[in-house]
Amino acid sequence: QEPLTASMLAAAPPQEQKQILGERLYPLIHAMHPFLAGKITGMLLEIDNSELLLMLESPESLHSKIEEAVAVLQVHQMSESSHKSA
């Protein structure tokens, strides 16, 4: 698969750009967290496209961001289950 570039991304409509980035991120995230991959990818897709492109080129920063997302999710899930509203 050819590397994704900013110009390739810019050629796509905005909504499509996130999908394209997600398609690149998902397999990488899936390799680390198969069960959370869809959720983590969705969280990372809220980051700026330019930053996501940098992450795709830098496995280390991508990995640390993935771990950050997992941590955020875990805290979120704990607080959700402790609230027990509704």
Binding site: Q19, G22, E23, L25, Y26, P27, H30, G38, K39, T41, G42, M43, L44, L45, E46, I47, K65, E68, A69, A71, V72, L73, V75, H76, Q77
Partner: peptide, 21 residues
Amino acid sequence: RKSTLNPNAKEFNPRSFAQPK
């Protein structure tokens, strides 16, 4: 509070992801 990641983000559904062999 350093994380800007949103745990309520919409889940991403891959269109073309195939399991690696």
